[in-house]
Amino acid sequence: MARKKRKAPGVNASSSADIAFMLLIFFLITTSMDTDKGLPRRLPPPVPKDQKQNDAVDIKKRNLLIVLINMNNQVLCGDEYIDIKQLKEKAKEFIDNPNNDEHKPEKVEVDVPYFGKQMVTKNHIISLQNDRGTTYSAYIQVQNELAAAYGELRDAISEKKFGKKFADLDEEKQAAVQMIYPQKISEAEPKNYGNVKKQ
């Protein structure tokens, strides 16, 4: 038996610096990527105080879809109660008006770049109304469904024309698609504020 004293080999630690660096870089990148996400909307400018009550532009009844959320978070679309899951289809039907239904928004001929002349439901308005007792999550869900309706319509026409999703198009093409399906969600003033009506 050889009684040679053997030294235990040390763990090679030369790569631990690299490992630590990689972790460091990972954390640095992920923290800067943590941006806030949300549903972007644009509020209408404030109504001048001296404005008359009926100054609002008359909207034809067929161009208007009223979505009302009551204090129990039930959704009233047009004049019937619907489930939140049905809202997207309802909204899509309303915005697109595929069958030229005379109770759905009228179509106006618009000259759109890339597409040429298109029949667009240019004057449609989805009016979103809520009660003061509505919960925020119900409101966001409805907002989300409406945004999804626009999103799906835009995606569909983008696929058909350019073979890409709306989000992957360049800015000019996106603008063209937006001309065909302009997002018109009006967040009506709450009933409690009373007499000022805007759209």
Binding site: L43, T135, P190, N192
Partner: peptide
């Protein structure tokens, strides 16, 4: 949150001309 307070905030933002908003979700 109840929408009442959100609506109040929205009205205040309109008055302040801060019209671009984002509902964080």
């Amino acid at each position: 949150t109840k929408m009442g307070i959100i609506t109040d905030i929205k009205q205040a933002l309109r008055e302040a001309y801060a019209l671009k908003i984002s509902y964080s979700a």
